[in-house]
């Protein structure tokens, strides 16, 4: 018997720490994954912020946000606006289409 990870894992996690967001104006739920980032710069390091967000792929599909629409989409959450510059599929034991995607974000140019 396979476990339903959407019901057992993602639903309670997103209910607990997910925040409301919009993706190109469509309401979704994301987990803010903005984190500190350190990059090598010769003999030193550069410290900065790597903005990111997790979203459930079934929720994107339910809202008719297709994979081709992800790149450069405007993602607004926690009072900040970002553009999707890239993404990582996180998969799930029930298959990639029932898993998450981590959006890698960039600042919206002024």
């Amino acid at each position: 018997m396979s476990l339903d990870y959407s019901r057992l894992l993602y639903d309670p996690v997103y209910a607990a720490i997910g925040v409301p967001a919009t993706m190109d104006g469509t309401a979704i739920t994301v987990i803010d994954d903005t984190r500190p980032k350190v990059l090598p710069a010769g003999t030193s390091d550069v410290r900065g912020t790597g903005p990111g967000a997790f979203v459930r792929i079934p929720e994107l599909e339910a809202n008719e946000i297709a994979r081709d629409d992800w790149q450069d989409a405007l993602l607004v959450f926690n009072g900040r606006s970002w553009l999707v510059r890239s993404y990582e599929l996180r998969g799930s034991p029930n298959g990639e289409d029932l898993g998450e995607v981590r959006f890698l974000l960039k600042a919206v140019d002024e």
Binding site: L39, G42, G48, G50
Partner: peptide
């Protein structure tokens, strides 16, 4: 010189 490129909130470039 050496160059390095990556992403933070914006595209980042370093030059040594």
């Amino acid at each position: 010189c050496d160059s390095t490129f990556a992403w933070l909130e914006k595209q980042w470039g370093g030059l040594q």
